[in-house]
Design a protein around this nucleic acid. Structure first.
Lengths: 341, 341
DNA sequence: CTCAGGACGCAAATCGTTTGGCCAATGTCG
DNA sequence: CGACATTGGCCAAACGATTTGCGTCCTGAG
């Protein structure tokens, strides 16, 4: 077999289907049919063709194929920043779901800027991707579509998008938050506070907090609801406010892990212990949650599963198996109990 | 202008260059020339064409263009796992370097498996990428090339690859390690140990350790050289060995951050303090380094810059600006002093 | 007035596949 | 034996751009 490598007349450019055909003494059509199986070809012919193919080392040119078939077997994933492990993992879930079907992944980083979102959207469409996964944060609804965009299926992660063939994947933030707070109640904590995100964001997490307290027969004191800005420093600031209250909380649920980290910092600053003096819970389950001391109890926001689900939704449309209205898949967010609560 | 959106006769498929041409009353050739600027076209004609283009909302079909021009303006990045922030950041650096020139990024996750490396390599080539960045770990040298692969430029990150048009990007691990250990010496630490990687890996980091000690007039005691397996748990195990020595070290340089984290765990376990009792340094500067307490002093292994450099190398070849032998760019690794040493 | 040469536009070939239509040979059945 | 499906294969037309070669018109110099 090694001789095959040598005997090929050093093809300066790639071998084409025509060369294979001529070597096998058949027409390009037949070679194509051998490869695709779209029509029957005789057993003898088939082996002749297959031999020619691997003697020549023929590999079909995808670009030409894409042009003709109008399918690229490539999908685009549009994320704010691939550097963020959340999106990295989402992308991986997507890639793993798509790979067995021969689909590859084209990544676009938008940094959450509308202009880049729009630009990459067009870019992806121009490149002929078969589908788009749009996970560029909360700004999704801002993107508008030209008439030509309508035939490419889209999956939107997080926010819903106004587009006829657009499916949605989102986490069940509310249920996750509710479960987290219920856990705090179970553990016997009495004054449970929350550090929310900035105004008008992630309302579902706050909602879960409220309904868990109500379900537990507690009142939600407005004093115990403060806002952070998603960052560690912001979480620390919010926590300081809480700890200065005349009647400070003995447990704090934070709308994300980063703020929870900041909250833990503050507890330590004050010479207190987590969770003995104050329990802390976060949301997202980022890598850092297992690194900090004590390890952070939190709610798992599953990016891999989100990517994977997005991939499945896309495939069902691309294959034509499904062609109806936009679907929504809601992913469960499980509480993961570690050391901090 | 909004009327333009409405008046288009709802093109079920995308607008082609021919439709633009007919609307503008010229030939497709002329439209192409207006777009590419490869030949002069009259001012009047140009505006007519441009008007037709945006009235129809024409967008060139990249697939067709790629087929004709044999350039896809897409490059592939082959990494073990995009989930790992190191590779995420590398990919981002690459994307940012390439984006201004209109290049997009196709990602392939290999999990370090030879078979997947080979498969994605072929896949990328079949898709007609203009270049490949190969960052799939130490296994790079294993990949072999068919004759058809030779015309696509490749950049290899980490290891060198045997390929005529292959450039290399790597970090200066040895100098980085040397600087880290020199820092420990400067700080007055006396018995400096090292937790190495597994046998036969990352020899440069050990080499840096040795030469820094020699430069400082110290002897390297074999007792103070132990091996970990790159993981946190492995680092902890190695650290325990060190701390059981009759004459335990007062500073430990770890071949990566994860192992350093494990080492810190052990110091705390023993009721000792970092860096008062034992100083710890790592290598890589992963995100976790700033999260842990005390924040880890380490050596920055710059993935963003690596990706960016890889992009530049690729571009210089794709543009034809450079066409010589394989180049190597070595990235400096700066010591970053935080709390742990 | 003539002619060289630049500016401008078009027709047609090309990139490498896939695929609908057609045809010949072979088999099947009444 | 005639009608008729079935099988296996080829031809040629797409797919949607770029690019080469060629012709025409215009302009300014001699």
């Amino acid at each position: 077999m090694k001789s095959g490598q040598v005997e090929t007349a050093s093809p300066v450019s790639r071998v084409t289907i025509a060369e294979v055909a001529s070597r096998a003494g058949v027409s390009p059509t037949t070679v194509s049919h051998v490869l695709s199986g779209k029509r029957a070809v005789g057993a003898r012919t088939r082996v002749t063709v297959l031999e020619a193919i691997d003697e020549l080392g023929y590999r079909p040119n995808h670009v030409a194929r894409n042009l003709r078939t109008r399918r690229s077997h490539m999908i685009a994933v549009v994320v704010p920043d691939i550097t963020n492990p959340f999106y990295g993992t989402l992308t991986r879930g997507l890639a793993d779901a798509l790979d067995p079907a021969g689909y590859g992944v084209y990544v676009c980083n938008t940094d959450g800027q509308h202009e880049r979102e729009r630009r990459f959207f067009d870019d992806a469409l121009d490149r002929g991707v078969d589908g788009i996964v749009f996970a560029s944060g909360e700004t999704a609804s801002q993107v508008t579509f030209g008439p030509a965009d309508m035939s490419t299926p889209i999956v939107c992660v997080g926010e819903r998008l106004d587009h006829p063939r657009c499916d949605t994947v989102r986490s069940d933030d509310e249920a996750g938050s509710r479960a987290a707070v219920a856990h705090l109640i179970d553990q016997g904590y009495q004054r449970i506070a929350m550090i929310q995100g900035p105004l008008r964001s992630a309302a579902a997490r706050t909602q879960g907090f409220r309904s868990a307290l109500q379900a537990g027969g507690r009142k939600v004191s407005p004093k115990l609801l403060v806002r952070g800005d998603w960052t560690r420093a912001g979480g620390a600031g919010a926590m300081r406010t809480l700890m200065k209250l005349p009647h400070r909380p003995d447990a704090v649920f934070c709308a994300n892990d980063l703020m929870a980290l900041g909250a833990i910092d503050v507890v330590h600053e004050l010479g207190l212990a987590v969770p003995a003096d104050v329990a802390i819970m976060g949301f997202d389950d980022v890598d850092a949650a297992t690194i900090v001391h004590p390890p952070l109890s939190t709610v798992r926001n599953p990016p891999y599963e989100a990517g994977s689900a997005a991939g499945d939704l896309l495939m069902s449309r691309m294959s034509g198996r499904y062609d109806g209205a936009g679907r929504t898949v809601v992913l469960p967010c499980a509480v993961v109990v570690r050391g901090s609560a």
